[in-house]
């Protein structure tokens, strides 16, 4: 039974309310799991969200979650205690609201300060340093806080760029 059927049960059914997909997952902090999560996320929202917004959402989440994965492996942990992260995405009026939490090290403050792209020296092109520029450029209401041993990052990806 779908949730709207349940709400409409009984002699005086309530008018159907619009239900929207959401996405929640706990995944291992490693690139293959990030990839799988993004593929599943795309399927979940495919009918509701434009290809353009979906592409921006996927890029932002790839950058955020790959950063978590990279830093989870950088801080050596006992093998049995592989790091995990939580991802939650819900649809709001103006965009897709996302929250990512993980128990890795504290996020360096400069990640959230306004950034410029790495200098484009044609003789020595930068091969990295783009991730936080992309995250900042594609999100709204980006915020971070540390709660005990956990990192919490939240932001919105607008439906219309």
């Amino acid at each position: 039974m779908s949730s709207s059927e349940r709400q409409n049960a009984g002699p005086k059914p309530r008018p159907a309310i619009r239900t929207q997909p959401m996405f929640h997952r706990v995944l291992q902090a490693e690139p293959q799991d990030v990839r799988q999560t993004l593929e599943d996320l795309r399927i979940r929202f495919a009918k509701e969200v434009s290809a353009d917004a979906m592409g921006r959402l996927e890029l932002v989440l790839a950058e955020v979650m790959n950063n978590v994965a990279e830093h989870a492996s950088a801080t050596a942990m006992p093998a049995a205690d592989a790091r995990s992260m939580h991802l939650c995405v819900v649809m709001h009026d103006n965009g897709l609201s996302c929250a990512i939490t993980d128990d890795g090290g504290k996020l360096p403050a400069d990640c959230l300060l306004p950034r410029t792209l790495p200098a484009l020296d044609p003789l020595d092109l930068p091969e990295g340093g783009f991730g936080w520029c992309l995250i900042q450029g594609l999100t709204q209401s980006l915020c971070y806080y540390r709660e005990g041993q956990r990192n919490c990052l939240a932001f919105t990806v607008p439906y219309h760029a």
Partner: peptide, 16 residues
């Protein structure tokens, strides 16, 4: 269909 900044970094490394 999809590329992130690590994929971009790979393309830049090949160009270089």
């Amino acid at each position: 269909d999809f590329m992130d900044s690590s994929g971009l970094g790979a393309m830049i490394a090949v160009r270089k």
